[in-house]
Design a protein around this nucleic acid. Structure first.
Lengths: 334, 334
DNA sequence: TTGTAAGCGTTATCAG
DNA sequence: CTGATAACGCTTACAA
């Protein structure tokens, strides 16, 4: 592999001039050409490590998500990765397998790799540590969940109105007893989605039966359990919102096992995965999060911070979701 | 951030000694202790870039897969990432969105990042380029697909026997006309799965009707089309094997849309995603690939090569799959 | 515009 | 076992 030195020798110019050329500085037109050819001829490739040693930049971004097996996150990551790469950044992607202890460990790993910036979904690992990062020179962007008391840029879906609108659709279709399978308490997205459920009930002057609100753990199993529990209660819901993809899967499994007929016995709205919505029968209504937009917003915001542009910091981007109503939802007659 | 120099000053020892300690060399016990404390006190962290400049190692592995939205690949990646990280390696994960041109570009990107090794799934981008990599000092491990004429370590599932065994189950259940929705021609996994289908027919002395073999493109849409086509033929199959996850989804969508009753009208075996097998009704039979084993094997093999151990190079690991038969398959009576 | 030279933090060689 | 010192390839004042 050839170095700047080789190019310098080949062209008869100095190392500094070559470096300047590479970094877009002013060089005589004739030398420009000379250098360009030399670089091509010698197949010169910049050594990022040497450069990084000098500039203290690695041109690498760390991305930390709860799970690489969660298509919601990987889709977003894929988009982010593309955009960053266009700006010359590589990405180190880590997952913490939904485990808060691991979250901390992986985050430290990322930092130890001297990444220039971080985009992460936090389950609330070591807030002090995350805060200390933002104190340093390294920009951090929070994805999908906000964390209280931490001044960081945030990109989230409008979770509150997502569930508000979904439940509103059910209310409009005359449902009075609407169940919801939520995520865990004290989890940002879950709390927001719960709030939306409550608020829309208030806005339509409907009573809230706490028993209709099941708290799952965002897992397939808890979705299954949630549906069972709601169906077994003495006055079961006629409609249901399930608030993430995994629990939606679980709920559908339970519906199949319990031979519940959708939508005549139960109207249902799921979350996140449009493709899956078409596979089950009848077609599943779902709440779609704007994954593309989330990814783009996060990537561009990070790029901006990386350039030193800290305008309107900390920024909060709250992106709109969309509700797709399909045959899995029925209008009640009386 | 403190450097070796700081530690040297703090302990009164020389830079060289500290470096030796860090790299596990021989140091007097008393100095050991001294250095250890100093490092702790000063929060010294090794600078990987400086080290890399010297050693020409980045402690970073490149991983290249067709799509980050394909859970088959991301599951494997997650496993690989974990193992590599335990050995101090970071991973740069790229996907090429099922696009051969992008495959090439991303691969070059990885190389430009000076990764120490690469694990990749190739759709057959620039073979010459991949070959040239193996000529260099950088170890490359091929995942999921073999490439002819390239001497590289390979970790694949036993695709041939995967479809062999699946179809065998159908044959045992007295099916005579068995359809198969395959991947594209000249794609390694698809060709192998096709071979298995053919071989098991031969072994059981069954005629092969070429019309029962549909070639899709490993996409949801082509799975849908495949099922439609097979169902419309004058003498349609009584059983079907679909040979990847996406096409399985597509086939199920078509089954729903066409109101085909499984298994009485059609027995079906899908591929890859166990979870999904439980969501559809009746429970779907599937061929499961050993993702954990694939990931572990690839990661460990790479680690071995990284250590300079080139025993039995190029190694070919062909891992066994498992067929799970569920209610979606029916035994024919006559 | 171009060149000189001093680092960036490590590792590695070679004396001591 | 320890220490001085020369790289590694690049950027960046500063000088020419």
């Amino acid at each position: 592999m050839s170095t700047i030195k080789d190019v310098a020798k080949y062209t008869g110019l100095s190392i500094a001039t070559i470096s300047k050329y590479i970094n877009g500085g002013n060089v005589l037109e004739q030398n420009r050409e000379l250098i360009k050819n030399a670089i091509e001829k010698l197949e010169y490739k910049r050594n990022d490590m040497a450069r990084g040693l000098k500039t203290n930049k690695t041109m690498t971004i760390g991305i930390l998500i709860p799970s690489l097996e969660n298509i919601f996150f990987t889709t977003i990551v894929s988009i982010i990765e593309d955009i960053l790469q266009d700006s010359g950044y590589g990405t180190i992607i880590c997952d913490f397998k939904e485990n808060v202890d691991l979250e901390q460990k992986k985050l430290e790993f990322l930092v130890s790799k001297n990444v220039d910036g971080i985009i992460m979904v936090s389950y609330g690992g070591d807030l002090e540590y995350i805060k200390s990062l933002s104190g340093k020179e390294i920009p951090v962007i929070l994805l999908d969940r906000m964390i209280k008391g931490v001044d960081l840029d945030v990109v989230v879906a409008d979770n509150l109105n997502a569930s508000y609108q979904a439940v509103e659709e059910l209310i409009i279709k005359k449902h009075k007893r609407i169940g919801i399978i939520c995520g865990p308490k004290n989890t940002y997205t879950a709390d927001e989605r719960r709030k939306g459920y409550i608020r829309v009930h208030q806005d339509y002057n409907l009573d809230i039966d706490e028993k209709l609100m099941f708290n799952g753990r965002y897992t397939v199993e808890s979705g299954y359990n949630g549906l069972e529990a709601l169906k077994k209660m003495e006055n079961p819901p006629t409609a249901l919102l399930v608030t993430n993809y995994e629990m939606t899967i679980g709920a559908i499994m339970a519906i199949n096992d319990l031979n519940i007929v959708v939508p005549s016995e139960l109207s249902i709205i799921g979350f996140d995965n449009i493709q899956m919505a078409k596979v089950v029968r009848p077609p599943l209504s779902i709440v779609e999060q704007p994954m593309k937009e989330i990814g783009e917003t996060a990537a561009k915001l990070l790029l901006k911070r990386l350039k030193g542009d800290y305008a309107s910091f900390p920024a909060v981007h709250r992106l709109k979701t969309k509700v797709h109503i399909k045959e899995s939802v029925q209008k009640l007659v009386n």
